[in-house]
Amino acid sequence: MEFSLGQIATILGGTVEGDSSKKVFRLDKIQEGKPGGISFLANEKYEPFLYETEATAVIVSEGFSPSKSFKTTLIRVKDAYLGFTTLLEAYTQITKTTLVGVEEPCYMHSSSSIGENAYRGAFSYIGKNCEIGTGVKIHGHAYVGDRVKIGDGSIIHPGAKICADTIIGKNCEIHPGAVIGSDGFGFAPQPDGTYKTIPQIGNVILEDNVSIGSNSTIDCATMGSTIIKKGAKIDNQVQIAHNVVIGENTVIAAQTGISGSTEIGKNCVIAGKAGIVGHIKIADQTTIGANTGISKTIKTSGQTLFGYMAMDLKDFLKSYSIFKNLDQLQRRVQELEKKG
């Protein structure tokens, strides 16, 4: 697909400095730009590449002033980074909408329904009594279990598994290998030391505009629902246990684990490898640092927590400054003791 620089400037609400009829058909890094490609410059440390790049066009911010001559054509926008993000979104939307129809072989039970402009990739499976919305894309080798509902515009990527009774809202994206609605970790200890499996009869609900990363797992509820609220973004390899609730617009980075029945507030940021125990609540707008362990309810919103076990970031940094000097302090104490 080719687009003129004038068309791109219109999409971005920007202006072209040069020939607006030039065509581009590829998105490039500025340091790897070639003819036919469009790049962006948002970080000043990449400015030297502007004067070397062979890209047909580069998106820059309105206030940018080049320090020497260059060959490329500039598209000026209010914010270069946001402008390029908008372009990526437009490109992605165009490529997504081109996938329509049914590839064979694939399977959908006769009791299920699917809306217009949908896509079913080869070897995909749709079980009984499913309701699939308009424009949904179900890629090859994806599995959709019985009684699943998927809202308009959602995408199920290759190899993702959507287990029975899951409800997925509009414009959600489930990346390759993710498993939504598998059994929660429920086992009752017995007098003889063995464990009895507790049936997990609930489901998972993903509200609108939720993204689930590759190889992440979200367990179904023991009873009721595990809920990921609208706008939440879950990275790759995240484990969310049964009956957890994730608040609106909360983001969770890779390898985080959240134990059962915990409630995470809205607009929280949880960094990689964080661990959160079960049956607690995390207040809105909480930031949890990488490798941080949360063992109790966080009641005050807006805190930044770090460490194991977690404490206020400022307190942690003060404590750490002492900790890293412990060897020095010990020697001083020993010297004082000798003098005493």
Rank of each mutant, 00 (worst) to 15 (best):
I8M: 04
G13T: 05
T15H: 07
T15I: 12
V16K: 06
V16Q: 07
G18Y: 08
S20Q: 12
K23H: 10
L27M: 15
I30P: 01
Q31S: 12
K34I: 13
P35Q: 03
A42N: 06
E47V: 13
L50R: 05
E52W: 04
E54I: 01
V58F: 03
V60C: 07
S67G: 14
K78A: 15
A80S: 15
G83E: 06
T95C: 11
T95D: 06
C106W: 04
I114E: 08
G121E: 07
F123W: 11
G133E: 04
G135T: 02
G135Q: 00
V136K: 07
I138G: 08
G145F: 07
G153M: 01
G169I: 03
G169Q: 01
K170Q: 09
C172F: 03
H175S: 00
G177A: 07
D183E: 10
G186Q: 04
P189L: 09
P191W: 04
P191S: 04
P191C: 05
D192G: 09
G193M: 09
P199Q: 09
I205P: 01
L206G: 01
D208L: 05
N209G: 00
A221L: 05
M223V: 15
Q239A: 13
I246E: 05
N249F: 14
A254T: 13
G260D: 04
E263H: 13
T286F: 09
T287I: 14
A290M: 13
T292R: 05
T292V: 11
I294Q: 03
K296I: 08
T304G: 01
F306M: 14
M309S: 13
M309C: 12
A310V: 07
A310H: 08
M311S: 14
L317Y: 15
Y320V: 04
E337C: 07
